[in-house]
Design a protein around this nucleic acid. Sequence first.
DNA 1: TGAACATATGAACAATCATTCATATAACGT
DNA 2: ACGTTATATGAATGATTGTTCATATGTTCA
Lengths: 128, 128
Amino acid sequence: MIQNREEVPGIPEPLHCETVESVKGQMPGNDFCSSLADFFKILGDMTRVRILLALSFSEMCVLDIAFLLGMTQSAISHQLRVLRHARLVKARKAGKSIFYSLDDEHVENIVEEGFEHLRHGGTRGAAG
Amino acid sequence: MIQNREEVPGIPEPLHCETVESVKGQMPGNDFCSSLADFFKILGDMTRVRILLALSFSEMCVLDIAFLLGMTQSAISHQLRVLRHARLVKARKAGKSIFYSLDDEHVENIVEEGFEHLRHGGTRGAAG
DNA sequence: TGAACATATGAACAATCATTCATATAACGT
DNA sequence: ACGTTATATGAATGATTGTTCATATGTTCA
């Protein structure tokens, strides 16, 4: 026997069924939502943001980025792997060095949008 | 005595000083980068993305969102607090219920950009 | 005022993740 | 071939974080 009131333990019943049904019909699938979140998750790290911003000004090799950000070559390389795997940056081999640059124009647009959001007094991280 | 080659232990010397100097001059401050990363970090969670997507279709109260996403009222409330504190959603009181809705048009634009990025075969989370 | 309902919140736990350290791969100069 | 340089990577670790559980706040109705 299952309870009367709760269909699923812990999960509440809806208050406004029409709204819920309507939204449920318009909601994208979980796969899409997951991909979207994973994409933003990559931008949700200060080091990666700084790498992307740097590359928006000029292509750079790993050691230069590491020096610019005052971080270890290993740390930068790990993050570049994440960015490369996400197709946000691309690599160009030149001798011993490997030059990275932005792979997607959308990246700059998105950063631009985030910038606009901050400008309009959205999320304030440092200055509370 | 300090080493000759390495100014800072662990941090490498730049290979292309001109590039580094140029980019360093254009780079935003760390505060800005940190705020930007914090902003994207908020979008980097599937639950929060689904909440924002749902609210882009209609304002909803907490229990409705919880039911829609098949999650606990507590979990949703916690995430709504994050979104509210980041000024991404706003709350409207109506009796016992509290209706949430998007607070910023940029949110939709940003989600749109992320969507475009995925469309162009950027980050593929589920469908590899 | 008391019961029922809607939401918020604090502490705890599990899972995720960025960095470090050590080491591997790869390319260049000699 | 050897040493040097540039980058990549695997394992370990410390920090962050999303969810759960229990409970608190606040609203409505009787």
